[in-house]
Nucleic acid binder design. Structure first.
Lengths: 364, 364
DNA sequence: CTCCATAAGTTGTACGTACGTATATAGTAC
DNA sequence: GTACTATATACGTACGTACAACTTATGGAG
């Protein structure tokens, strides 16, 4: 029998030392130079031995520091090559989401990351499935737009599992209050406050708010509305608060119509977003009233819908594409610098004035 | 940023050659000596590169014989239940793409497949990166919207490599003529013929076609235009053919203006798609002409843009969401039934008549 | 035609040298 | 005591040489 090559003999000898505890877990083993002298071989041979042990998970090397006994037996072979980022949003094709996803994809692909995509249709069951899929695919980071962010989320344990595994993640547009996750979003409360104040400044007093109640954005936007009133020490009419959620959106038209037929119907609307605004515009025009002469209307997000119809909406900006880019860069930073506790990014809202608002002409 | 070490560069270069099929599965790659000369480095460096690829499972070495491309592409992940479908499109956020992607995602997630997404911006270099990424991530199927489908594609060898590995794939919207890949798309030629015939029926004779030349859809739509004329044995004016491509789209406005200022300016336009139609509408209105009284205009795709402006466009339907669903179901079928040679799906175009067309009022 | 020794080619082992880059530490200045 | 700097030390990259071990192709003997 031919004797085994030196580097195999040395490898086995070192392995023995590790296994019988001579080289303790997490401790530094002798340097390559020392081992070279000890075994009377070239450094190259030592490196060969150590390379195999590193590959098998017994050792870990740190440039400039030394070689250490690994504390985990081949825990997992970290796929060094291409990393994957998971992205979960409520919707994909609607509204501002394509721009957000595009921003994310653009940054990720330029940095050599793959993008695993999933949507929830704002349904927590789907969110669960998405999270399971992402975990199974072993994503290296997650960008999540929360589903039903205003409600208690039944998938919280999944998020905790993600944290436990050390997978960095960031919320966009909203976040779950129960988790202290970093978030990248618009300051929705201040945004709504600005919109409402704008209308109040124009002399409107009976302002109707139309907002969503099952996501945090809707709640925040409602809070902003309330705050604008309280800042000038006035109260708003509770009858002029229209709320809806993902499931009850079909009834929204009726609710709007009812408010428009009130004796003291509103002279202005603050809408949850441009999509809702378009709906409201349609109902206003259906009863023959004119915007902005009869009724003023404002909304959030400044999407393509803001200027798509004949009514050019006064709205609040939304970073969209930039938000996606920021989220992607955030998650890449978290992965590469291993820093999970990065800051949130909250965008400052800016009012974009168009022709959907005018002074209140009614006599008080 | 410091440049990467030689052995990493060489490693990646060899990996590419494997992924794009230049080094075929199970075939022998050049010897260390040959690679050494090819890359002009020492044999040691080559051995470093190859060692990593062997470790990652791309290569196998046999002493005395050579180094071979490993064929274990999908061996280890066979057990994992969750499969991944790669989707490569030219764009993500623009136009009809969000709907297509949504359709794909909806079907895939319901069937328990994961979706790996990438876009090319209609740039073949990006397409190459995307394909490499998909192969590295070991997707189980591919849905591809070809990039620059009218031109000879430099990434054909990647596609051949995909076929070799037995990964099913399907083209959407267009296809590469060099490959005999199944495709899911609109019958663009017939669509354009219908649009043009519609205008001819209305008495228009000087019709301007505005089309794209670097994708197959554009070429097909041009052919349909030509065929409509030839069916009634008439010739069209070559001066009224406006072409553009991804890179020259900035000059399009000028080209349109020039045609509009011709002595015998057109009385109707056939547009590549709604996006282009909106541009043409803007230029027509800029010179004070009215649609459809002065000039008629038709376009493809029936997107939200068809009805977004005050001009409601006569257009050709596009399945969008359904196309995405069909593509997803197609690829799932191919995987589960292991049948790669499924039929293509070609949608029949339907004319959707709105108010952007009227009879030619000019005297012949 | 078959068998087998040989040559040629390929990867494996092992040595050496030199310099680059990252980390830890001891010493210095403040 | 703190902050910075210089130095030593560790691993990383890259060049080179030589020969061993193994496989495959070749060509001649039978």
């Amino acid at each position: 029998m031919v004797s085994e090559p030196k580097y195999i003999i040395i490898k086995n000898e070192i392995k023995q030392l590790i296994l019988n505890g001579e080289y303790e877990v997490s401790s530094k083993i002798p340097s390559e130079a020392e081992l070279k002298d000890k075994f009377n071989v070239s450094r190259h041979t030592i490196r060969q031995s150590i390379a195999e042990l590193v590959n098998e998970g017994y050792l870990k090397k740190e440039q400039g520091s030394g070689t250490y006994v690994s504390n985990q037996y081949r825990l997992e072979q970290k796929d060094t090559s291409q990393k994957t980022i998971g992205v979960i949003t409520t919707y994909l094709s609607d509204y501002i989401f394509p721009s957000i996803i595009r921003g994310i994809e653009d940054v990720l692909s330029k940095k050599g990351y793959a993008l695993l995509l999933s949507s929830t249709q704002n349904n927590v069951e789907n969110e669960k499935r998405s999270l399971e899929m992402m975990l199974e695919k072993r994503v290296d980071g997650l960008i999540i737009e929360p589903t039903k962010s205003a409600n208690l989320n039944p998938n919280l344990n999944y998020y905790l599992g993600i944290q436990e595994r050390g997978i960095p993640y960031v919320s966009i547009n909203a976040s779950y209050e129960e988790l202290e996750a970093p978030e990248i979003r618009m300051d929705d409360r201040l945004a709504s406050e600005k919109l409402t104040s704008h209308l109040l400044d124009l002399g409107h007093t009976r302002i109707c708010m139309v907002t969503k109640t099952d996501d945090l954005q809707g709640k925040e936007r409602m809070k902003g509305f309330v705050r604008a009133y309280s800042k000038i020490n006035k109260a708003f009419d509770g009858n002029l608060m229209i709320t809806f959620d993902t499931e009850s959106i079909e009834n929204l038209t009726k609710k709007i119509d009812r408010v428009l037929q009130l004796d003291n119907s509103p002279t202005a609307f603050v809408c949850y977003n441009d999509q809702i605004a378009v709906k409201v515009i349609e109902r206003i025009q259906a009863i023959g009233k004119k915007i902005p002469q009869d009724i003023s209307i404002v909304s959030h997000d400044n999407s393509f819908l803001s200027t798509a119809t004949d009514v050019k909406l006064t709205s609040i900006n939304h970073p969209k594409d930039q938000l996606g880019r920021d989220a992607a860069n955030w998650i890449i930073q978290a992965i590469e610098k291993n820093s999970f506790k990065q800051d949130s990014i909250i965008y400052e809202p800016k009012l974009i004035t168009r022709s959907s608002t005018s002074k209140n002409t009614e006599i008080d």
